[in-house]
């Protein structure tokens, strides 16, 4: 167990008041190991942090004969809630949700196909993943926007190799939004497929046998027994994918779809406040990735049921525990007490 740097010389909780031993001797007190280099490292970190705070908020610079704050937070504040940028945020969130939901659906489908004993099905899934993982998203986005209208100026829906019922102009159907969501979703599907597959094969085969011996069908077994357990493996990388997707949506800049990043660029192209608007974009991306991080923590905690004897504390509980520990003589809340006596 690592110990956070505390005031030196104060034993932390562990040392119980020593009681006289059997022969009247006093049992020796435990003195924890000292960590001097930890103190040095902490000092270095503190200096760096101080430098960063200084340069971010208190330093000035001369630009074109005018002395102004280095990071121009005033300009940042002015555009942070600027209407076009808020609209851009809406599009970014829409794209993220669409791409992740579609990606997960495609991923589950492909994962089940890849695990199918039918070679054609598993081969098709393999081919899909090979293609979409093997080419850059940027190229795929361009492809869906420019390539589709070039290759198929008229899209026709109907019987394969037979007559088409509806024919539409690709330029009308494939808007930047459609191309953007399509490109991101199909690409995400390939990655999610591998994540879901890893989750499914991590579940012990005995679980499937037990479910089948109760009379559950293959579909029930997958839905009620295998997938819930696979979730524990699937959730953490899916959280990463969602956070990653939120930022990847900025790539649709190249097909002129106006989401958060494109919106900030449009503004800075007009007023030349390039850096402050990059900061505006960064602040919003950080805000939403932070929310996702907290959300991911609670989802992981939910699916940890049954895999750990005691659920890990929530950030709130950790905070409370930390506060209690600051007071001398209080060992903190008993968080690690198991939910019930584990063994008979």
């Amino acid at each position: 167990m690592t110990e956070p740097p505390g005031p030196p010389g104060t034993p932390r909780g562990a040392a119980a008041p020593s009681a006289p031993g059997a022969e009247g001797k006093v049992a020796p007190t435990v003195v924890p190991v000292r960590h001097p280099w930890r103190w040095v490292a902490s000092a270095v970190v503190l200096v760096v942090v101080a430098m960063m705070v200084n340069t971010l908020f208190f330093s000035h610079v001369e630009r074109g004969g005018v002395r102004e704050g280095r990071f121009q937070w005033g300009v940042v504040g002015k555009y942070l809630f600027y209407h076009p940028i808020l609209r851009g945020i809406g599009v970014t969130l829409e794209l993220t949700v669409i791409a992740m939901v579609a990606g997960i659906v495609i991923g589950v489908l492909l994962a089940v196909m890849r695990l199918s004993p039918n070679r054609l099905l598993s081969g098709a899934a393999w081919l899909y993943i090979w293609f979409f993982r093997g080419t850059p998203v940027l190229v795929q986005l361009f492809f869906w926007y420019v390539g589709i209208t070039y290759l198929y100026p008229h899209l026709s829906f109907g019987i394969p190799f037979g007559p088409g019922f509806v024919t539409v102009n690709a330029n009308v159907l494939v808007t930047t939004f459609v191309a953007g969501s399509l490109g991101l979703s199909l690409n995400e599907g390939a990655y999610m497929a591998e994540i879901v597959r890893a989750g499914i094969i991590s579940v012990d085969e005995g679980q499937t046998e037990a479910a089948q011996s109760l009379g559950m069908s293959k579909r029930q077994t997958l839905r009620l027994i295998v997938l819930p357990q696979a979730m524990r493996i699937i959730i953490p990388p899916t959280g990463n994918e969602t956070i990653s997707m939120l930022k990847t949506t900025s790539l649709v800049y190249v097909i002129a779809l106006v989401e958060l990043f494109t919106a900030t660029q449009n503004v800075s192209n007009a007023n030349y406040e390039t850096v402050p608007l990059l900061l505006v974009a960064s602040i919003w991306y950080l805000f939403f990735t932070s929310i996702l991080t907290v959300g991911q923590y609670y989802v992981e905690r939910h699916y940890a049921r049954g895999s750990t004897r005691a659920l890990p504390p929530t950030p709130l509980q950790k905070l409370r525990q930390g506060l209690f520990q600051l007071r001398p003589g209080r060992p903190g809340l008993p968080m690690d007490v198991p939910l019930a006596a584990p063994h008979e």
Binding site: G206, A210, P228, Q229, S307
Partner: peptide, 9 residues
């Protein structure tokens, strides 16, 4: 079963 195979979740 030998390994119980209870549903852990």
């Amino acid at each position: 079963f030998q390994r119980f195979n209870l549903f852990p979740h």
